[in-house]
Design a binder for these strands. Sequence first.
DNA 1: CGTTCGATGCACT
DNA 2: GTGCATCGAACGT
Length: 227
Amino acid sequence: MTPVAGRLDSSPPAAAPLPRAFYDRPTLDVARDLVGMLLVHDTPAGRTSGVIVETEAYIGESDPACHAAPGPTPRNAPLYGPPGIAYVYLNYGMHYLVNAVTEPAGSPAAVLIRALSPVEGVALMRRRRARGTGRPGDGLAEMALCRGPGNLTRALGISLRQNGADLCGSRLVITAGPGAPGPLAWGPRIGISVGTEAPWRCYVGGHPAVSKQNGGSDPAKGKGHRV
DNA sequence: CGTTCGATGCACT
DNA sequence: GTGCATCGAACGT
């Protein structure tokens, strides 16, 4: 067997990241097209990755739920920068949330990654999920590992260190994936108190890794508008 | 089933 | 000091 030139480790070759032009588009288009793509994080501990199955768009200073709503601040600076950059921040004092910055520099907008269907590094994800919680991560179903924006960053080892990382680079990247594993649906964004009218959450209807269904108390599945 | 609530850190007023 | 783009345990029905 001929070794692959230039590869010194045993990990499989990574697919090429999506080009920056992918992110340099209207945010709702990017939010839709990111579903089915693969989010990959390479670290010294190993590679973890998953298919994106849930996203939310946050668009501009006029969107009251967007972190750019108060105008430029030190924290939201990445939103004002070039597209294709990771915007990571700490929420509720304990969860890191990761976004992909969209649209040209100067127009602050991003897509929040809310859930993944795990692909690579499931054992490492379990170890990371268990760490610090005092509870065993072993009992977690595979589809629960990256369900929810705070859970997926923990499973992939994403923290403030990745804030500003280039998603078109080599460590934290988004590559072409297998495509959405089910029908897309749109609905209101979750966990916000303003801007709830906009149906800017895009997800795979009924997918087990998707954090919540629309309607809360409504047990029916896939309540969002099908695309 | 359903809803409430505590944990926990920091950006912003 | 206030309010989070959350999570999961603990409660109520």
